[in-house]
């Protein structure tokens, strides 16, 4: 077997999206072709306006066993969420 095209992760920002979202993966010999391939593979239904590609090998994921320490501390900081604050209806939309 000859050398395989590396795997890329594809992120697309859609017409009305603020953020790039992970949509899937594909194979391509380099970043430029990965962009072209992503356009053909992942925007067949007019999904995207901006594409990012990242070599899959470069992705570092959080380890699930650390799920507690990574995410739980933020659970207690409820004041970060707007619903924490009671604003009287009379004040209007805020």
């Amino acid at each position: 077997m000859s050398k395989e095209w590396p795997l890329w992760e594809v992120f697309i920002r859609g017409q009305h999206g603020l953020n790039h979202r992970h949509v899937g993966s594909l194979h391509a010999p380099d970043a430029e072709m990965a962009i072209l391939n992503a356009r053909d593979v992942y925007t067949r239904r007019n999904e995207g306006v901006s594409i990012w590609v990242v070599p899959s090998a470069q992705i570092t994921a959080s380890s699930p066993s650390e799920k507690g320490p990574l995410f739980e501390p933020s659970n207690s900081k409820v004041y970060r969420h707007p619903t924490f604050f009671d604003i009287p209806d009379e004040v209007g939309h805020m």
Binding site: W5, H27, A28, N37, D40, V41, R44
Partner: peptide, 11 residues
């Protein structure tokens, strides 16, 4: 020769 090309050519 590759799935990506198949899809691109169909486009």
């Amino acid at each position: 020769p590759a799935l990506e090309e198949d899809i691109a050519l169909a486009n």
